[in-house]
Each structure stands twice: as C-alpha cells, then as structure tokens.
Write a protein that binds this DNA or RNA. Sequence first.
DNA 1: ATTTAATAGGACATTTTTATCCGATTTAAT
DNA 2: ATTAAATCGGATAAAAATGTCCTATTAAAT
Lengths: 144, 144
Amino acid sequence: MFSKACEYGIRAATYIASQSKLSRRVSLKEIADEIDSPVAFTAKILQQLSRNKIIDSVKGASGGFEISRSQIDHIKLSQIVYAIDGNNVYVGCGLGLKKCNASKPCPVHDKFVQIREDLKNMLENTSLDEMTTGLEVGLTYLKR
Amino acid sequence: MFSKACEYGIRAATYIASQSKLSRRVSLKEIADEIDSPVAFTAKILQQLSRNKIIDSVKGASGGFEISRSQIDHIKLSQIVYAIDGNNVYVGCGLGLKKCNASKPCPVHDKFVQIREDLKNMLENTSLDEMTTGLEVGLTYLKR
DNA sequence: ATTTAATAGGACATTTTTATCCGATTTAAT
DNA sequence: ATTAAATCGGATAAAAATGTCCTATTAAAT
Ligand code: FES
Ligand code: FES
C-alpha cells in the first residue's frame, strides 16, 4: 500500500506530534527507537518531512524535531503520504495502466476508484492530532 | 497497491480468459503485446499462475496459455493477488507494524481495516469472467 | 574559545523488485 | 527423423527501494 519510507514517515510524524503536545522536542534517536525504524533511514525521511514543512527541525545541541500546535491540527495524513510517495495512490490505475481515466478504463476501474476514493478521503480527513489521541491513553501503538 | 508483477498477472489472466472464451489459446508474445508488458518478465509471472493452477499452459508447437470455462467462472482476483503478492494486502498493517491486530492497534487501524476489507471483498467477489465482460464489448481495456 | 550534542547531506552498500538472456524441453507438423 | 514453435527454468543484469556511514554544520553549554 505505502512504501516503507512512508510508513516510517507517518509513524515518526505521529510520535513527534504526540511529544510536541507535551512540549517535548525529540531527537532522531528517540524517534527511531519509539517507532522501531532504522536510525539513518529515518533521518532521511525526517529531512523530507522537514523540507515539506510538515515537521520542524532544530539543529545544534538540544536540537531535534517538533511540530507546532497549529500544524498538529492542520496536517493531514494525505499530505505526508503525498510528500513521500507522491500521488500515485490517489490517481493511479489499480492494474497499472499508464493512466486511470473513465474514458478508457481498465476492467476494475469502477470498483477500484471507489476504494481509492475511500482511502483518499480517510487520509484527507485524518489529522495528526487525531493520530495522537489514542496513543496518549495507551489505546494505540506505533510499534509492536 | 499491487506489485508490477501482480498487475501484469491480473491483466494477463484477464486477457487469456477473454480469448479462452473464444476458444483461442494464446502465446506468451501475444499476451505481452496485448497487455503491454515485458515479454520475459511476463513469462515468469505466467509460470507462477500456472503452478498455482490459475491458468493452464501447453508446451510445444501450437502451445500457449488458456483457462478452462469452469476456471474462468470460479477464479477470483483475490486468488491471483494471493498467488503473486501473498497475503500482506489482506492482513498487513497500514503503517507497517509487524502485526495488525485489534488488541494492539496502530492509530489508523480501525479506519484502515475498513478499507482493507472493502478491497478484500472486492477482489474476492470479482471473477475472471466478470473481468472479461467489458473487454468483449470494447468498454474496458488492458492497455492504453 | 572549546567542547559537546544534535541535524544536514552526500556517498556508499545492500536488498528487493523488475527485467533480460539463453539453453533445455516439449510437441506438432513435415 | 528433422525441423520449427512454443513453454520452462536457471543465470544474470538493471533499476529501485531500503539502509548505512561519514563529514560538515549548527547551536547550546561550559
Ligand atoms: S483505469 Fe484502472 S483503475 Fe482506473
Ligand atoms: S494495526 Fe495497523 S492497520 Fe491494524
């Protein structure tokens, strides 16, 4: 569904958001540990998210990653997925045809578009804040 | 969503089914041409489908690939996806946690499982025969 | 000023996926 | 029997995704 990079990206952003809500800036190492991801690879993904203004990075001693309260409320999963995996999940054909388009559809077009739209709507309607609510009370997890 | 191999596999099986309904056995070359896929790679995928009893292969001169009428009616997309991509699309966590399980769910579990189940149901309820119906009348396509 | 702890980013390595090549085998037709 | 047309299967190659390493840069603390 999503690339590994994207999965790590969502988990990382969610963890950063959860800690930012507690006014804790977090380090790369802590993030990788908390989401069970490879440290150096996670660093690359955090850079991408930072360049895309999804998270904030602070360099130097006592630096780390954080997300502002307003961003926590406004950033949706769809933006993270788009920043890392691009738009294929939103517009690509389920059978890999060069274009997905109702004027020359593949045999699963109608059924697939429904599912793709459901996924798109889910991602567009899920904020980082919503991602953190279960975490805070121990109902959901970022590793297992 | 699906691997390239799986996309080619579905398209190939659909094309073979459509021609088998016309009592035409088709060659690897013709299949690759009709679904716009790399010939040698497609050969590997057809072997997989053949070993999994999803299509029949006939060796030797005038050989090729075909699907029996009863198989066309009862093979579902889910079986093709499973044969090539395994079961991750049916049971995997959307955020890549090692296991997806309601007892220790990731933050998107509930929403993701819904979409995953919709996709699963769609694949389980779409037969190869249904895949071919639009093709036959020029309403759907396997390349563009 | 120096040290220390952190991210940034380029280069490199490994693994997986995608794709190609070629000889072996099978079967129909001659 | 020989030839031709086809799949089978192993080896290899190329590309993409995933992962690692190292140096530069930044900024706080001393
Ligand atoms: S053309 Fe295949 S999903 Fe739209
Ligand atoms: S635990 Fe992530 S989708 Fe179920």
